[in-house]
Amino acid sequence: MAILVDKETRLVVQGITGNQGSFHTKRMLEYGTCVVAGVSPGKAGRAVHGVPVFDSVAEAVEGEGANASVIFVPAPFAADAAMEAIDAGVGLIVIVTEHIPVQEAMEVIAFARERGSTIVGPNTFGVISPGKCKIGIMPNHIYQPGPVGILARSGTLSYEIAAGLSAAGLGQSTVVGLGGDRVVGLSFTDLLPALEDDPETEAVVLVGEIGGSAEEEAAGLIASMRKPVVAYIAGKSAPPGKRMGHAGAIIERGKGTYESKVKTLERAGVEVADLPWKVGEVLKEVMG
């Protein structure tokens, strides 16, 4: 099972002829992802690592049956690329591109909701169901198939945690990068119900950070979940008013603090690991 992606996923890479697009197409193919098409306007007829290139997403959908897209298009054009994919009926769109203007992200998400597409990102490392399918830029070697679902707001921190879990014998069912921007398509609350229902997932790890209210909103759902949830929250030492890299990672107007997130999560029954390398230990305890 897993969520969002599996063996049935047929991926189109938008921006496949660029450096990033081409490089990560190769890595995704090596991982075993079914990359069926690439899109690069004006470059139809070429092939990148054996993947046929089309002028438009619609042609990739028609010609190759693509049902998911990953976007490596530069920021000023990325929202347009996402809208093209939504318009072509692609069900899952993973926007890796960072630095997309926030209002364009809102427009894309509004259009996706209207047409029933799911947006992951922007500014995400992607989605992986280990052993089945990888969409994105995460390293290939750190994941193992297994029972833990991971939902993360940040990339490298989640790599660190996933690698630690793999080393401790705790593989992953699906790992989703929500994206580091202030406005992203999916939040913890959108994915927790799917993980709760996923027969392959036995426990969930949230990798959160200061800023916004995503963790607090998640707590509301977790309180009624059967599966155990463990969290790690970055930014305990961050001073208010300073944006810590991610657009969302800022304590503004006294909201989104570490203390607020931890307190709300713990009240919902979440075990919060105070150090990233302790997530595995805590998971083993709660999974019994």
Partner: peptide, 28 residues
């Protein structure tokens, strides 16, 4: 390298009694 791990590094430093001078995310 990466915003999340940089934040976590600052937290860990403080946890071990250190005082970070900065947040510098060299990027993934």
């Amino acid at each position: 390298n990466g915003a999340g791990i940089t934040m976590a590094t600052l937290d860990i430093l403080q946890r071990y009694g250190g005082r970070p001078a900065n947040f510098l995310d060299a990027g993934g």
